[in-house]
Amino acid sequence: MTSIMTESGVDAGEGWGAARADAKVVRSRKRRLTLGLTAAAVLAGIPFIDGFVDGFRGVPRHPTPDWIVDVLLLPVLLLAAVVSWRNWREMDEVQRALAVQVWAVIGCAGLVSSVFLEVLGKYVALGEVSHMAWFLSAAIGMVFYFYRRVRA
């Protein structure tokens, strides 16, 4: 077995690269699992906190004012921002290029679908057009992402 030293002085013998890539995948999976569990805990915890406040005050459960619900969404948005930032730092340039393309597709789909659905909504009962456009553009972005990943 040949022993090759990298520029940083690390022994880079055979299988060094594969072991490094495997370790990276394991680290990435652990991080994703932790973040997924945290996200689930935050989302599941919001209604619990909501009911807990009423229980603590000893008053019957009542609908939460909108501003409290909005404030409770802040940790969710913060978590999404942290996850996105950490993922971006972990990505290589090919993955970053794909991420930028996915965001561009979502943006374009949102731009077109919001106008299209608004016009269509005049003739067909569509419900909440802005929500529909949001979900449609997100779905188109996801389809684009998985199509590119499968092709790669």
Binding site: W16, G17, A18, R20, A21, D92, V94, Q95
Partner: peptide
């Protein structure tokens, strides 16, 4: 995967 590890990029890259 070996090359990806040595270059510090993903196998997909």
């Amino acid at each position: 995967a070996e090359l990806a590890g040595r270059l510090d990029v993903s196998r997909q890259a």
